[in-house]
């Protein structure tokens, strides 16, 4: 019910181990998901940047000098 005390919430009616482990695992997987997706995008962006830099005539001239 509303107004459950803080210790009641932590104890989860004796199921604290199961409930909080489940929620903890959920949080870890979600955070990893977000980080992995962002890393995939950052890596792809880095690769594209490198390609573009190689094709850039300004850089080509610097390489030759």
């Amino acid at each position: 019910m509303m107004g459950r005390s803080f210790s009641d919430v932590i104890a989860m009616g004796g199921y604290a181990g199961f409930v909080w482990t489940a929620y903890g695992a959920w949080l870890v997987v979600i955070v990893l998901n977000i980080l992995a997706a962002r890393k995939a995008h950052a890596d792809a962006l880095k690769q594209v940047r490198r390609r573009l830099a190689m094709r850039d005539p300004a850089n080509v001239e610097v390489d030759r000098s």
Binding site: R38, A40, A44, V48
Partner: peptide
């Protein structure tokens, strides 16, 4: 996010 990485 992942789709944009794939497209890149």
């Amino acid at each position: 996010v992942r789709l944009r990485a794939e497209i890149l």
